[in-house]
Nucleic acid binder design. Structure first.
Lengths: 194, 194
DNA sequence: TAACATTTAGGACAAACATCCTAATTCAGG
DNA sequence: CCTGAATTAGGATGTTTGTCCTAAATGTTA
């Protein structure tokens, strides 16, 4: 096998990942990706049989990346409450990207739902990764009964913040909501753990 | 002027409005709209100089429709708290559409932001219509200081519910969140009005 | 009815698109 | 070095797109 043989596929996925986030899936052409990677357009069909196949690879890559990220977070602190705060703060840390392109998970799901793409069911697994991790942290922090429900709620709160911040390109609103959400969660944790 | 002359423009806008919501703006072609209206593709450019112009007309039409809708709500009851509940319940009333196509306001803004369309600043005026109305109702119900901030928060809560319900196609989650949001708002109103 | 303006249909157009095909290039193993 | 497989480049193809053009059809006015 050739030297770059194994990595070219990964480079295509990385470029597609970023372009799908920045420009949307439908709005990104093979030419766009090829230009970024620096290969010819036709060469694509040796590595991916269709555009759907690249989307599939991008979704898988994101899921893997998110799982790795959450593992890193787990190493940063053993305190589940701090972990939950770190999750919510993610929006502040990525403020520029959120303002410009929205949430990479939510905006892709929104687009796939709109064009009735069959891979929406795969895309929303990106949400599930975070939901399951949030559920675990909430249980660790003492939320017994409604941990799963509360984690879904937290996903929605994050999506709301991202969508509105993105629509208004309003950084101040983003930070305000992030702060408010952390305070609300602290109270909720207190209530739920008696 | 011909009989249908005045209404054809409106019929085109109505068809585009619905298709943009169901399939997205970029994913809707002139042919799609022409097929629904029942006119020839080329005939478009007599009524609209470009696709951007149709988008502009659709956004204006939606803003007008939303304002009319809010006026109807104002007539339904004079109780601002009931009006706020009626706003939140809108998601339940439109459950099928939300599950299938998301929020017509949020999903369009998300798409326009993604393709860096210059009319995003016009599209988010749809949000502003609701925000201003919410601010008025909140002030009427006794929220003095943070009425505008709270109305922005309500927009975001709605967007979060729509985005996640749409991504998971989860009707139960939608209703659960709607109920929870109304309860939370009642408490918030109590707190804010001393 | 005649002359004029408005409205419509239908095709022409170039650009962009996903996909396919083929020939050239590069590699590993003998 | 030779050979066959893996990899790549670049063009061909057919479709769809937004936009434009022109002539026909329809309405209005005199």
């Amino acid at each position: 096998m050739r030297n770059k043989g194994g990595t070219l596929r990964l480079r295509i996925i990385a470029a597609a990942d970023e372009l799908f986030y920045q420009q949307g899936y439908e709005n990104t052409s093979f030419s766009d990706i090829a230009d970024v990677v620096g290969i010819s357009r036709g060469n694509f069909y040796y590595h991916f049989k269709s555009k759907d196949e690249i989307l599939d690879a991008v979704i898988d890559a994101r899921i893997t990346r998110f799982k790795e990220m959450l593992n890193e977070w787990d190493k940063k602190t053993t305190d589940p409450k701090q972990r939950l705060h770190y999750y919510i703060d993610m929006q502040s840390r990525n403020q520029e990207k959120i303002i410009s392109h929205g949430c990479p998970v939510g905006s892709l799901c929104t687009e796939l739902a709109k064009i009735r793409h069959f891979m929406l069911v795969d895309a929303n697994k990106m949400f599930t990764v975070f939901r399951d991790w949030l559920t675990t942290q909430l249980e660790l922090v003492g939320v017994k009964k409604n941990a799963k429900q509360l984690s879904m709620h937290l996903l929605a709160r994050g999506q709301g913040i991202a969508t509105v911040s993105n629509a208004f390109e309003d950084k101040a609103f983003l930070h305000q909501e992030v702060t408010q959400l952390k305070q609300w969660l602290d109270v909720e944790i207190l209530k739920a753990s008696h």
